[in-house]
Simulated assay, not measured.
Amino acid sequence: MTETIVVTDYDFPDLSIESSVLEDADVELRGEYARTPEEVIDTARGADALLVQYAEITEAVFEALPDVRAVGRYGIGVDSIDVDAAAAHGVPVVNVPDYCIEEVPTHTLGLLLACVRKIPKYDRAIKGGEWDWTAGKPIHRVTGATLGLVGFGKLPRRLIDLVEGFDLDVLVYDPYVDAEKIEAAGAEKVGLDDLLGRSRYVSIHAPLTDETRHLIDADALDRMREDAILVNTARGPLVDAEALFEAVEAGDIAGAGLDVLPEEPPSDPPLDHDAIVYTPHVAFYSEASEETMRRTVTEDVLGILRGEPPRNPVNDPVDGGD
């Protein structure tokens, strides 16, 4: 009997990688462009599994699509999927936790250096006919500064490796990681207030949960140094964007590098300010990482349909199910 995998939404040029994984399987692959739960329900009826990029998968989806036996998320974060509801319906959810270990830390460092060295500002000035090295003053030396990491998963640990040559003091706030593990990586475990007060550079790497939403709010920004630069390559809602823009405009912090925003794409252009560098949620991307992500999650979902245990589970349908 032919099974059906529905790709709820995607911004890839095609589904050739997924098709190549399923080439020898008795599986129909169907691509849709559904983002809301209602759109997913309307377009994925009869599906045995879902591959999800940005679509919101709520409890209502699992109620309406009882044939779904697996959900795969293109990426690391699963904040758009109700994983507890999936578990309660006996549905494993899988992600791809390791596909962009090189890309995100590299992009984070790129944003940080672009902010510190005022590279976008100089670029715009030269293209506008201006040649003035003083236009970016003041610029501070990177070497010997303090870097604060909010979250300490695989990506920030790799970032520590990348900045080794800059001789930075590294602080870490992560209540779920032991101090010994952080110290073994050459960093110091501290509280969030301490990190914000001491760090010239603050890089966000926490998952988005109810607990971490607006973790960096107006009060947190007020505790940061005036020469601080904030970089966010994790999830937009971790930072109160309006409070951040106000802090930058007021000169309360020196700048920000943002790969993520609370609304993507934003309905209104975000603050146009020389001290803020934006990229369009691209930190995950290289040709190699994209192929790995798509191939890995498709293979995992196919394996589940064949009765194999999930490789990268993020929930436990055995304990959570009926």
Rank of each mutant, 00 (worst) to 15 (best):
T4H: 07
D11T: 08
D11H: 14
S16C: 12
I17P: 08
D24V: 14
R30E: 10
A44N: 07
E56K: 14
A64F: 04
P66D: 07
V71D: 02
Y74L: 06
I76Q: 03
D79T: 06
D82G: 06
A85Y: 00
A86P: 12
P92G: 05
V94W: 03
D98F: 11
Y99P: 09
Y99G: 07
H107N: 12
H107R: 11
K127M: 11
E130V: 15
G136A: 05
P138W: 01
H140Y: 11
G148R: 02
G153M: 02
K154F: 01
D161P: 05
F166V: 09
D167Y: 11
D169Y: 02
D169T: 14
P175N: 02
D178S: 13
D178W: 13
E183I: 15
L195M: 11
A206P: 02
T212C: 09
D217W: 00
D217P: 11
D217E: 08
R223H: 10
E226A: 13
N232M: 13
L238E: 01
D240F: 05
D240N: 14
E249S: 15
G255K: 07
A256G: 09
A256F: 11
D259L: 02
D259N: 11
P262L: 08
S267K: 15
D268I: 00
I276W: 00
V282G: 08
A288M: 10
R294M: 10
R295E: 14
R295V: 12
T298Y: 09
L302M: 11
L302T: 08
G303M: 05
I304P: 01
E308P: 08
P313G: 09
N315G: 01
